[in-house]
Design a protein around this nucleic acid. Structure first.
Lengths: 140, 140
DNA sequence: AAATAAAATTGTAATAATTACAGAATTGAA
DNA sequence: TTCAATTCTGTAATTATTACAATTTTATTT
């Protein structure tokens, strides 16, 4: 399935900009922020406006085609992988990595029994990634 | 232990402002944002500056006396309870509730084996709280 | 194919959260 | 009491995000 059809499957009308942004999200698993996407696509679409990037990602999130991550304190990041998974942000280089997520049914049941309706599960870790650990130890 | 000694135990020099802010954090489990704290303490300390609230909470987080939550997209929230626990934010009223957290040792081991050094574990849920669910069903 | 209506995009201006910074106030030590 | 260091304050600057009106593009109707 191409990106055009992929957008349609989420009830999103495809446009040049929307296709380019979704394509970027699907091909780059860097969990990009607005600026990263804007800068990356600006070469191909010189008329692209940052407002469009904002609007488009908001649309994607509303339609379930992308997820917004609030892990980074500075600015929101976006993920085209909508499957259930956790994240790891390196405090040193700032990169966000995908991690497996095992949902704990006991916790879920506890919340449901208390009357909470759980719609989203977010799980992330912070620490130092293997690369930065290596670089840091090299300096000593 | 009073708040004065509590701050000292985290290597934080107590001051009128710092004591008031930490006292607020320890007594109110509402996961307040900067504004909530500023407005609440303004009556007692009319000279309090919002910059001081920012600086103080940054200091608390650096010393491990508070945790910053990036659950709410609008602005950062703070938690004086530094023990390991999860959170639940209601999409309807915006309130953040404490939830138990059971750390999954398997996930931890997976990351450690891959070379990641895990320093923080964050887990939160979004959905509708019991109160809002009740109010919503009443409207029908 | 031309005219029209609807939707999407753009750029600028406004808003809001956060940070930088310099001066004032407070604290602690000599 | 004096001096130095620290903390606090208020304003200005910065940055991310949103509002909005004008323009462009797309889809529909005639």
């Amino acid at each position: 399935m191409n990106v055009y059809e992929y957008l349609l499957s989420y009830d999103i009308k495809p446009s040049v900009q929307r296709i380019a942004i979704m394509d970027y999200l699907l091909k780059h698993h860097t969990h990009p922020c607005i600026d990263e996407i804007y800068i990356a696509l600006h070469d191909d679409i010189p008329t692209l406006s940052k407002t469009t990037v904002y609007n488009t990602l908001k649309l994607f999130v509303e339609h379930g085609a992308a997820k917004m991550l609030t892990i980074d304190e500075r600015n929101a990041c976006f993920d085209g992988d909508t499957s259930a998974h956790a994240h790891f942000q390196c405090k040193c280089c700032g990169r966000i990595f995908d991690m497996p997520m095992h949902i704990n049914e006991n916790e879920m049941n506890e919340m449901t029994e208390k009357g909470f309706s759980v719609e989203e599960v977010h799980s992330y870790y912070k620490g130092v990634c293997p690369e930065c650990r290596k670089n840091n130890s090299d300096k000593n």
